[in-house]
């Protein structure tokens, strides 16, 4: 087998489609930490985040043809799947059970892919800066939706604002985020 560490993400998925476990392991090495990190941020539970991470990688294993490299990065494909599943879980869990299930998500083993992890650290730093540059109202709406799993209708109720206002805040906030990230040199293709 050629050196999988040098293969592009799209090439790796082609190998996964041929039942290469080593290729899936390489995908996990590159993206497993980010998928787990997002799931645990939304779910606030390490055990449930592990479940979501397992589902995401098993899904890639079982249906690799679902990833379309012409539509975006593998990272975005995996993160979108992880976020959708995490949000579904949050919405189906009672608040009480969530609090019970919540546990510390600290002190993880070191990431296998050091370079990727270093880059992720840069991205998350830039994202934090980009978020901080947003108007407070836009940032709040995006955070409530994305990290806490609320629908924009719920966000409107929480913030006591009209739904239309929240919808446009999310839209303008996302557009601003895109501009901020580009300005800071973080673009989709590099993720």
């Amino acid at each position: 087998m050629e050196d999988l560490a040098e293969a592009s993400d799209a090439q790796l998925v082609t190998h996964v489609a041929r039942y290469s476990q080593a290729a899936l392991a390489e995908v996990y090495r590159r993206h497993g930490g980010a998928v787990f990190g997002l799931a645990s941020r939304v779910l606030n539970s390490r055990a449930e985040a592990e479940d979501v991470t397992q589902e995401v990688f098993l899904r890639l294993w079982n249906a690799p043809e679902r990833f379309d490299p012409t539509r975006g990065s593998l990272r975005a494909y995996l993160m979108t799947m992880a976020h959708g599943r995490a949000v579904d879980a949050v919405r189906s869990l009672s608040a009480a059970r969530r609090r019970e299930a919540a546990d510390a998500t600290r002190s993880f083993a070191p990431a296998p892919d050091v370079a990727q992890r270093a880059w992720d650290a840069v991205v998350s730093e830039q994202v934090a800066a980009a978020l901080a540059a947003l108007p407070e109202a836009e940032r709040r709406a995006i955070e409530l939706a994305y990290f806490e799993g609320h629908t924009y209708v719920e966000v409107a109720r929480i913030l006591d604002e009209p739904e239309g206002t929240i919808k446009s805040r999310i839209r303008s906030g996302m557009r601003r985020m895109r501009g901020e990230l580009e300005r800071r040199g973080v673009q989709g293709a590099e993720l």
Binding site: S73, M174, L191
Partner: peptide, 23 residues
């Protein structure tokens, strides 16, 4: 927009030890 959301959700966390073995 999904790429922007992906950036938003990026952390430098590592996956827990043993998770790959379970997968």
């Amino acid at each position: 927009l999904r790429e922007v959301a992906t950036a938003l959700g990026t952390t430098s966390l590592a996956a827990p030890e043993g998770l790959w073995e379970r997968i």
